[in-house]
């Protein structure tokens, strides 16, 4: 079972103070800590587990500058076998469509049974690269995947997490692309031996020419969408008073938390 996992090196924004940069279309990146996108972390772990069970190889692919090597090394330390990074300064400003196209150009030359991505990236949250990549590759896909059962090398049963606690089970023909949801597994910690292994492996770097891509097809020029504006919405302070017995109030709180996806 040969698996390709698409990963993204992202700024960790959850606990940081975020500021909008002077262009008004991006955030200030200076001082932010970068790491692997959380969803991709689960996708890599899932791929390594499948490889450990069925054999084959795991190749991680990213689009990003040299700093993204640290994310690829982390994947290699966790058990991935090969790593590919695509970069060209002209890729700056690429939208999800362009990224999916670039990934397609890389992956179409690889042997694969499965392509895994995270459901979404924590920085732009578009959640579209996976499905678009599957369209480029002309293979079926499933999103929000919380469980993968491989019947054989021809098909997989996947569990998809829907809203409201529902699970959907679908059978998908292979090769296929699955966008992995967090919580599908417990990603392993990187060990000292894993790090040592990772440092011995080479990260293959590809440019636009290697992928037969023209400058006009990537970056701002090749994108279908352009960020118009990024802003921090003014905080709305709404105070809601709950009435009733403690039991009733507790039930109401639970309802509110559930409705916001917090429970």
């Amino acid at each position: 079972m040969n698996i390709v996992v698409c990963v993204k090196h992202v700024p960790k924004c959850a606990e940081a103070e975020i500021r909008i940069d002077p262009t008004g279309r991006d955030i200030e990146k200076h001082g932010l800590v970068y790491d692997i996108n959380e969803w991709d972390d689960y996708a890599v772990e899932e791929a390594v587990r499948i490889k450990e069970k069925f054999g084959g190889s795991v190749t991680v692919v990213t689009v990003g500058p040299e700093e993204a090597n640290s994310t690829l090394r982390k994947c290699l330390a966790r058990g991935a076998d090969n790593a590919i990074r695509v970069y060209d300064p002209k890729l700056v400003g690429s939208d999800p469509y362009v990224i999916a196209k670039v990934l397609y150009k890389v992956i179409k030359n690889l042997q694969f049974d499965l392509v895994l991505t995270g459901v979404m990236a924590e920085d732009d949250g578009s959640a579209t690269v996976g499905p678009m990549l599957a369209e480029f590759l002309k293979i079926p896909h499933a999103t929000m995947v919380k469980k993968i059962e491989l019947k054989d090398h021809k098909a997989a049963i996947v569990h998809r997490e829907l809203e409201g606690g529902l699970m959907e089970v679908v059978e998908v023909k292979l090769p296929a692309l699955f966008a992995i949801q967090t919580g599908i597994n417990e990603p392993r910690y990187v060990s000292i031996l894993g790090i040592r292994r990772a440092m011995q492996k080479e990260i293959k770097v590809l440019g636009l020419k290697d992928l037969s891509l023209d400058e006009s097809e990537v970056g701002y020029a090749g994108s279908w969408t352009l960020i118009d504006k990024l802003f921090v919405p003014p905080a709305e302070k709404v105070c809601q008073y709950l009435k009733g017995s403690p039991e009733e109030v507790a039930t109401q709180i639970l309802g509110i938390l559930k409705s916001r996806g917090l429970f």
Binding site: S70, K74, A77, V190, I192, I195, R196, M199
Partner: peptide
């Protein structure tokens, strides 16, 4: 080194 940075990052995540 890159190896040491990965080590720091990994231990931090573990902790």
């Amino acid at each position: 080194t890159k190896e040491q940075e990965l080590l720091r990052n990994s231990i931090e995540e573990f902790c």
